[in-house]
Design a protein around this nucleic acid. Structure first.
Lengths: 160, 160
DNA sequence: AGCCTTAAGGTCAAGGTTAATCAATAATGG
DNA sequence: CCATTATTGATTAACCTTGACCTTAAGGCT
């Protein structure tokens, strides 16, 4: 594991308390970089590539005196199985009908609630509409885009 | 000595909490500054950076004898009010930074929770990425698209 | 009333500190 | 060998604190 990015990623992961499904930690970018003997922007790279919303993390930061970086973990432990399952269900492209059925099913099973379903519906419709009227995208391509978006959102929820 | 601004912000927040959920409080700038051992303009900085309309506050003040500063917390009770306010804050275009701050505020205020924030972030990132790499959309246009999407998602939640 | 004094609060810019961005380059994996 | 991923450093942007100087309101005094 001579990869610095992976080392720092692991270090940050260790900071999270493994019991809590939702927790957050704080860092000083400068100090962390110093302790790993690297340039500060390396930390940004780690965050950008490893601690994204798609992976269930939210990051907040503040510059200036007493600056900080806070990383929040929203997801549960070990969602791997479910991720695969979601990917399988959604597939590479999804029609409007299928996606409605899927969302209904997910809600029934308690994987998402009504509000979450609403946001997802709105985002998918927006993407479809934009592709249709602003960029003249074919229906199939729109279905591909929506499948991608849907998978990302569901993955971020990581659960169930 | 931790961040003075944050300490004063916390002090003011406590005033709101302790005052029977009052929706507005009053201060004397000079006294407050004195009690924190800082320069009076520090108070202005706290107000400008922390008690903004984006965060749901309005500030009015009076100079001269019997001067004062009054901070009002904008009501989020009525769904219609929330809707109008959110629309106002988001505006026609929103930068990545502003949208992140807004979502943090909305979560703090309890209008959305962490999971909802996560889905919203993912949808916005997806829209941005798609515009950037697939359709070569200008940054401003992407900010317009994201503002539109964000408003739609938030509207759906506010009315839910 | 009109002026003066005093008592508030407001603005702005400089200086210090810290994080973000971006583009160039290097390293790695397939 | 090519494409992706990682590393670096220079530049930019954001945040906080302080202080000098400006503006406005109230009350008293002629």
């Amino acid at each position: 594991m001579s990869n610095l990015t992976r080392v720092i990623e692991q270090y940050i992961n260790d900071l999270f308390d493994s019991d809590n499904e939702e927790s957050s930690i704080s860092l000083r970018r400068k100090e962390l970089a110093a302790s790993f003997g690297c340039v500060p922007s390396q930390i940004n790279y780690v965050l950008r590539s490893r601690f994204t919303p798609e992976k269930g993390y939210l990051v907040e930061s503040q510059r200036g005196g007493h600056g900080y970086i806070r990383i929040m973990r929203i997801s549960w432990e070990d969602p791997e199985d479910r991720l695969r399952h979601v990917d399988e269900i959604v597939g590479d492209a999804i029609s409007e009908q299928d996606r409605r059925k899927l969302l209904a099913t997910l809600q029934e099973r308690g994987l998402i609630n009504a509000r979450e379903r609403l946001i997802i519906e709105v985002a998918l419709r927006h993407a479809d509409e934009l592709g249709r009227s602003d960029f003249d995208v074919s229906q199939h391509k729109r279905n591909v885009i929506q499948a991608d978006l849907l998978k990302r959102m569901l993955r971020s929820l990581v659960l169930a």
